[in-house]
Design a protein around this nucleic acid. Structure first.
Length: 247
DNA sequence: CTAAATGTTAAGCC
DNA sequence: GGGCTTAACATTTA
């Protein structure tokens, strides 16, 4: 569920509820659910890995974390994992399971940098580059997971982007040549859209070239697997064709 | 069967 | 306070 492209799919899957009035709200989320009853779901937005249900007086933020999911009309998981259930008229309903649910102000425009969302029309590569400059000592594997810079990028996208551009995950940002930095920023967005397309076709896994793979298809050599950087997330990379730039 | 995982936050420790 | 580690969340997949 969790990487940015999956949230685009989620928004699409529930878009028919936009403009509909919530009849009742329940679930074990620790927000005031009562205020939602009687309110119209004005808009459904995403920012990276987050989904926003916008109402007149507040916004409900859903983050699926690692194991979260949702379903439309039918309950798909046990009651205990229902964080939020929204009932609409005509037996229509939305379920959100095992996710982080937060109540935010109605106006969230100033809460996030919408130009940091790699899947948004507002994405600004120049801005990403500027932000990367401010953390020169960070490793690229950590930088890609930084949601303030690459909102929506997760561990799969990270692995695939680094493999595509032949960049070693432990390269320090300061040592990345300018042209390679451009590739990095460009591919973070491009692979996210490829991910989205393949996920919709249910062919995502078969397109993985690095994530959870054994062999590098370019070199026919074994991938190295390591929990890299301060984020310590699993990284599969080819030490032969992914270049580690130093100094 | 067991372990790890598409992620983040909060708490606890030094 | 900073920075690091751990737990928590609960299901699916290898």
């Amino acid at each position: 569920m969790p990487e940015g492209p999956s949230l685009i799919i989620a928004r699409e899957a529930i878009k028919e509820f936009k403009g509909k009035k919530v009849v009742a709200a329940s679930g074990n989320a620790k927000i005031d659910k009562d205020i939602l009853a009687g309110q119209k779901l004005i808009d459904i937005r995403t920012w990276g890995k987050q989904l926003f249900l916008c109402f007149k007086t507040s916004t409900v933020r859903i983050h699926f974390l690692m194991f979260g999911s949702y379903s439309v009309d039918e309950q798909k998981r046990k009651k205990q994992s229902i964080r939020l259930r929204l009932d609409f008229s005509n037996e229509r309903r939305l379920f959100f399971y095992t996710c982080s649910v937060l109540s935010l102000p109605a106006h969230i425009d100033d809460l996030y940098d919408w130009e940091a969302d790699v899947l948004s029309d507002k994405w600004k590569p120049v801005k990403a580059r500027r932000k990367l400059k401010t953390i020169p000592e960070d490793l690229v594997c950590d930088a890609l997971l930084n949601q303030d810079i690459f909102s929506g990028v997760g561990n799969i996208i990270k692995n695939e982007v680094l493999y595509r551009i032949r960049l070693h995950p432990e390269t320090k940002l300061v040592n990345i040549p300018s042209k390679k930095m451009s590739e990095l920023i460009k591919e973070a967005r491009q692979y996210s859209f490829d991910f989205l397309k393949w996920k919709k076709e249910f062919t995502l896994k078969k397109h993985w070239l690095a994530y959870n793979q054994k062999l590098c298809k370019r070199c026919n050599l074994l991938f190295k697997k390591k929990y890299c950087g301060k984020t310590k997330r699993k990284t599969c990379y080819c030490t032969n064709c992914q270049v580690l730039y130093k100094e």
